[in-house]
Design a protein around this nucleic acid. Structure first.
Lengths: 206, 206
DNA sequence: GTAGCATTCAAACGCTCGTTTTACCTACGA
DNA sequence: TCGTAGGTAAAACGAGCGTTTGAATGCTAC
């Protein structure tokens, strides 16, 4: 028996996340999803109404958690008066890192998220903006305070670059392969360290 | 009549590029492609054999040109003994920028390329690696010479981050919207300038 | 025990998919 | 002028798609 102790809805969400990451939203069929989840084909439309809505629910489940973790990490960082750029970047990056290492498919979700960016779908963008917008604003304010010489627009550009590099790195788009003897976790942590160092220097650029 | 002065093959490639960018490889059907190209449905299988091979040809057409331009720009930069990090980054980034501004659909291609990364498809990756590998090696060597204190692996990580940020920026994934009164070309040029400044500082990070 | 509800199930709906087939057109060399 | 090869055309192929249906099942409250 395969994960029979999870509810039908949860098993569908998990299987959908895996298959959307691997095959894309259009490429993964509901028959594949329901077979992987070990549920009946009709269960998707019964519980979620449509494939389109299933996609939204796959996002909601993870983004709510990611947003909360990022805001909490930012708050924790800001409590310490010594908090520097690297600490802020860490608050932004490490929750995504943790998610990508999460048992139960978070690793697939970061790839789904990268696909969502690639989709360029307006409805999906609005959904992401609604869920992410206020978080980005909070981070922007914190960065702005620590980079007083940077004008507002310049900072927007640079944070956008950071978000791009992070998306790319977390989704494992890059060419760098994990070496044998290095665990997935170690590989991603190193990736995060490099990213933080690089991004901090980039943000401080004259 | 719609672009009837181009050959059937060229019209198919152009229409496929646009639709793959907008809808993805799985999401765009051959019926949509052939309708947009104003050719018969069977023409794709006649001229390209299969949808899979059509996808490869869409890449080949642009990548051959992009690779040549990047190598030429690198060679030009290396001729000048004063060439610095920014010049190397420019040699890497500006050919992609030019492509994205190319009349006749290059702007769609950079989004197709970003989708290819998101696809995580092994066959496609090998295809891209075969076509890109030697170019990346040349750039790596040039960067290594100008960053003698950086060890080889560290440089790989950082160039991977640059490639990610570039892919993300060129495909217009970001949240920054073009302002009214700023042309598409100006917007992308600014994007490239910010990217170069950011990346140069990131590469020089201690 | 049984009524009532939520869930699961097999089957089918109409539709679109990539691909193939077969006939037709058109130009050019013999 | 005819034969032939390269290209285009409409139509059909079987398979798979998202979704819907209606019956069968399990569970809870009376």
């Amino acid at each position: 028996m395969n994960s029979q102790h999870f509810s039908t809805k949860e098993r569908i969400l998990g299987a959908a996340e895996q298959l959307f990451a691997r095959l894309g939203f259009a490429g993964a069929s509901l028959r594949q999803v329901t077979a992987a989840a070990n549920v009946n084909l009709a269960a998707v439309n019964y519980h979620f109404g449509s494939k389109e809505n299933l996609i939204n629910e796959v996002f909601r489940r993870r983004l709510d958690e990611l947003n909360a973790h990022r805001l909490q990490a930012l708050e924790d960082a800001l409590k310490r008066p010594s908090a520097d750029l690297e600490d802020l970047l860490s608050a932004f990056i490490h929750p995504a890192l943790d998610l990508s290492l999460d048992r139960g498919g978070g690793g697939a979700f970061v790839r789904v998220l990268a696909r969502a960016y690639a989709e360029h779908n307006d409805a999906l963008r609005k959904f992401l903006s609604d869920n992410y917008g206020h978080v980005m604003k909070r981070f922007h304010a914190a960065f702005a305070q620590r980079l007083p010489d940077l004008d507002k627009e310049e900072l927007y550009w640079r944070l956008d670059i950071v978000a791009g590099a992070l998306t790319y790195a977390m989704a494992d788009f890059g060419v760098i392969k994990r070496k044998t003897g290095v665990t997935e976790q170690q590989h991603r942590e190193r990736s995060a360290e490099h990213l933080i160092r690089f991004a901090a220097a980039g943000l401080r650029a004259p």
